[in-house]
Measured scan of single mutants.
Amino acid sequence: EETVVIALYDYQTNDPQELALRRNEEYCLLDSSEIHWWRVQDRNGHEGYVPSSYLVEKS
């Protein structure tokens, strides 16, 4: 079962390993094994790492 997370803030990045976030957008959580950086996928299928503190699990 996939976990959906919501971005609390915008996040901009130039790092190809990371993914930009848009506030209030939903993302699919792929990997939360790292404490500070979670791997997520956006609705267009793009994947990357984002700061975990910018996300909240959708209830």
Rank of each mutant, 00 (worst) to 15 (best):
L55P: 00
E57C: 08
R43L: 11
C28I: 15
N14S: 11
W38V: 05
E57K: 10
E34R: 15
W38R: 04
N14E: 15
E26R: 06
D15G: 15
P16V: 10
V40L: 08
P16W: 04
G45A: 05
D10M: 01
W38S: 09
N14W: 05
R23H: 11
L21T: 04
D10Q: 02
G48D: 00
N24K: 09
I35Y: 08
S32C: 10
L19K: 02
V40Q: 00
R39W: 08
E47Y: 06
A20F: 14
E25A: 10
R39L: 14
G45E: 05
A20E: 13
L21G: 00
Q41M: 09
V5I: 04
L29V: 11
Y9D: 13
K58R: 12
A20H: 12
I35R: 15
E18C: 08
L30T: 10
A7P: 03
V56H: 06
R39H: 06
A7N: 00
E25Q: 09
Q12L: 12
N24C: 15
D31Q: 05
S32E: 07
P51R: 04
Y9R: 15
L8M: 13
S33M: 07
R43N: 12
S32L: 04
G48P: 00
Y49F: 11
R23M: 08
N44Q: 14
L19E: 00
S52N: 07
E18T: 07
S59I: 10
A7Y: 01
S33Q: 13
E26M: 05
E26A: 06
V5R: 04
E57A: 13
E57D: 05
L30H: 03
Y27L: 04
R22W: 10
D10V: 00
R39F: 10
V40I: 07
Y54R: 04
E57Q: 09
G45W: 02
R39Q: 11
V50I: 02
V56C: 06
Y49T: 13
E47R: 08
N24F: 06
L29R: 04
Q17K: 15
E1H: 01
D42M: 00
P16S: 12
W37G: 08
L8F: 05
E34Y: 09
A20R: 11
N14I: 08
N14M: 07
W38E: 01
